[in-house]
Amino acid sequence: MALEDQVPVVAGVHMIALYICAVIAVYAALRVITERNSMRKLPFLNVVSFAVTGIIALLLPHPLTIAAAAAYFVGSTLESNAIASTWAGGLKRP
């Protein structure tokens, strides 16, 4: 059913990179919820998105993973773009 019987499990040698990505994701998430200003939250959200993209790529090395990581990154960027544009009143304002 799933792809997981075709691809190898992550080997034990690259674990430190995965841990660094996880720790940075948690740190940036805590910075997101403790920041008061609504626009200054968006750079920290971008750090969360980078770290999760790294986690996705490091968890499952398979050629389709590149498309998954790029799709997640572009989707998250588009979401931030839409939030910032609406906050600035770029698109919808009469």
């Binding site: 799933a2 792809l3 997981e4 691809v7 994701a25 998430a29 997101v32 919820i33 609504s38 939250k41 968006l42 959200l45 969360v48 998105s49 999760v52 986690i55 996705i56 968890l59 499952l60 398979h62 389709l64 993973t65 498309a67 998954a68 997640y72 998250s76 979401e79 931030s80 939030i83």
Partner: peptide, 20 residues
Amino acid sequence: ISLSVLIAGVFPFIVERGFL
């Protein structure tokens, strides 16, 4: 913005199951 932090946390579970 907080909702997209939640969505970011869901993705490692999906990828770990193998549903790319």
